[in-house]
Design a protein around this nucleic acid. Sequence first.
DNA 1: TAGTGGTCTAGACCACTAG
DNA 2: TAGTGGTCTAGACCACTAG
Lengths: 248, 248
Amino acid sequence: MIKECLNTMNIPIYIHVAECIKEKINKGILKPGDLIPSENELSKEYETSRMTIRKSLSLMANEGYIFPVHGKGNYVTKPDQTKYILYFDELNCIESHIDKRKLLGVNVMKPTEMVRFHLKIPKEANVVMIRSLMYSHGQPVIYDIKYFPYDKGVPIVEKEINYATFPEMVAKKLSPFSIKKELTIQATKSEGELNELLQLEEGHPLLLIEQKIITDKNRHIGWGQIYLPSEYCKICAESSIDKSKNIF
Amino acid sequence: MIKECLNTMNIPIYIHVAECIKEKINKGILKPGDLIPSENELSKEYETSRMTIRKSLSLMANEGYIFPVHGKGNYVTKPDQTKYILYFDELNCIESHIDKRKLLGVNVMKPTEMVRFHLKIPKEANVVMIRSLMYSHGQPVIYDIKYFPYDKGVPIVEKEINYATFPEMVAKKLSPFSIKKELTIQATKSEGELNELLQLEEGHPLLLIEQKIITDKNRHIGWGQIYLPSEYCKICAESSIDKSKNIF
DNA sequence: TAGTGGTCTAGACCACTAG
DNA sequence: TAGTGGTCTAGACCACTAG
């Protein structure tokens, strides 16, 4: 009877079962740390096969609701209240549209201590430094410096510099699945050269975002700094529990 | 032969198949947008059942490598280069250990315009404001303000205020699965009251992190601001493609 | 030893896609 | 119409857990 009702509505059984159990978790009937009924018990309760129940449980485990323990059962997760998802892309990190990009310079140089530290390269190596300013409505809003190890064989193409994001630029020959990126966000203030470049008064608050790109072989192939005047940029993140659409 | 070899090594077939295909993607043999061989072709190639192949594909889809299209096949994903995972918890966001927490005040008050905007409550409503300072080695390092709608029935327990994170405090009766959190990060500078509280000079760079907590019924049940002197805090995030351990 | 989850099979029927 | 992925079954055998 249950199955017929569901089938006419075209909702797969495994989705229905998962929804039922998730509802119990959301309402607190099943609490973090609790053991949910076993696969065999659930197959009887929902009059379906064990494999279908396993599909429901696998879905819920992927969504972060439960986790299985071999020989014991499936436990309700204690969710990680500290985890967030953040989207960042230096070409789209400010609210207003970037209408101009000015290349300030492309230099091959010996690395400073800090650049050496981040790219993990020897003193003798050369690095490429690319500096650019981005404008919105005639106002400079982003100052961007990128460094990567200098590779004689690879020409630096201006078009790529202007229209590519950092990962695209640095890892153009690598599979996008084989690179890792790290981001750090800190507060700083405008001083020295930054005042002129970004047309700011001394001491103006800035977000400093550093980006690092690392290959699957642990080669550090890019490091960059992005300076953003505080009024143009807020970084947003949200909690990451992957829930079904009907909850939010 | 293949199966026997795998079985003696105790590696499940579905893991092996997924590893093989992921390697082809990481090496660029299969590129974003490409169609991978069909489930039937793969079952022949790896001499296993279609359900086992489906388990491999499901694993890879969850890890973000491929996505299935009904009636067409499984495509290699174009990964989202802008997505990062960030961990944030106001009690553990600075490198050094917080050894003291001083409660500056707990007030029931009429909301300011900004608080009303964030909590989406009417003018007449009351809010609770909790202000505290956190210290590390005798130095104030975090100034924290939290607001939530005042609910007469619920007493405010000092212990909870002192030792709970915001989500724990505000949603103590709710299932942790039924709340959503939002974070915004911006740069600002110390001025007025902040100078004294955090013992900073006027204009010192600060990170301002705002946290909002929303229920599954879209009730805004908490909003907070956290001020952090730049030298004590860097927010870190990293790319989120969920890869198997042997890659990194 | 009884119960749990983990892997795998061979088959069925379905809905969707595209020539 | 042939090929694709989506759902579901009834069964097998295994490794792990805990009394």
